[in-house]
Design a protein around this nucleic acid. Structure first.
Ligand SMILES: [Mn+2]
Ligand SMILES: [Mn+2]
Ligand SMILES: [Zn+2]
Ligand SMILES: [Zn+2]
Lengths: 139, 139
DNA sequence: TCTTTGTTTAGACATAGTCTAAGCTAGGAT
DNA sequence: ATCCTAGCTTAGACTATGTCTAAACAAAGA
């Protein structure tokens, strides 16, 4: 797994101290933080970091294609550093736990031509929902 | 006459004038309005209708399982009366046009057991993205 | 050094949605 | 019919999330 800072550097994008802290906060597997969670964690290392810079930086990383912006619940967006590794998501309806998952095959192939309404279809994302092991026990 | 109103009545749910206007505003295929769009359209027939009632009513219809709440873009939620016909969505990245689509097979079957992280997986929704005929021409 | 360009910041602003408290309405009991 | 009660509707306050602005700041290049 190539780290996010390394991938960002390839875009001639200035890695300022603020941007580095934000990018490093986003490292890892199954990481899907909200902007506020990122701000809170990044502020542990750089307390003067501003909310505007977190939003600016996240939006730029999304525009560069190195971070995915996820909007599943209509509350706050979540940011996923795993943009170089196509995957889908599995979400617990009890506690919100979110996991990266990989389905077999390409969902675009499961959409027949007569269901495409003339669109040029380029991407497909699957959202799986269910209950995680902890929430099954609690049920 | 009104399919959604008929379905709602089965839940012993009082169909007030306000609720009827909101439900009838939601009738149709490929209907995915925001709460504000529903308020605006419903107010054409009942000008004194309040924003709070629109939100209350939509949330109750979602809780009854007769309307789907969609959150694709992190902006406003959209409401889909087509809850009795399982389907997925195809969204134009140019103009936001959204169509109901039907894929072949069940996406849950395409998620291997070793990708389920111990979850009991109950639902799967596919979001297809591309460009609609108009936006392909405009490109 | 000076200049230019891009970055960061606080706070104002915008939007979407929820909550509260009061008034209203419908239906059941008397 | 009148009263009572539970539920419904309403305006507006409030919260949460995110964007915008203008000024200060920082870095690279001449
Ligand atoms: Mn992910
Ligand atoms: Mn739909
Ligand atoms: Zn859970
Ligand atoms: Zn389009």
């Amino acid at each position: 797994m190539s780290d996010l800072v390394t991938r960002l550097r390839r875009h001639n994008w200035r890695i300022t101290p603020q941007r580095r802290v934000i990018a490093e906060t986003l490292e890892g597997s199954h990481v899907h933080f909200t902007a506020d969670e990122i701000l809170e964690r990044a502020c542990e290392r750089m307390p003067e970091l501003s909310r505007a810079t977190v939003y600016n930086t996240l939006n730029e990383m999304v525009a560069l294609g190195e971070v995915l912006e996820l909007a599943f619940d209509g509350r706050s967006k979540r940011y996923d550093p795993n943009a170089d590794h196509a995957h889908h998501h599995l979400i617990c309806e009890g506690c919100g736990l979110m996991k990266d998952v990989h389905a077999v095959g390409d969902p675009i192939e499961w959409l027949p031509g007569d269901e495409r309404h003339g669109f040029a279809v380029t991407r497909a994302a699957i959202t799986y929902r269910g209950r995680c092991p902890d929430c099954q026990d609690a049920a």
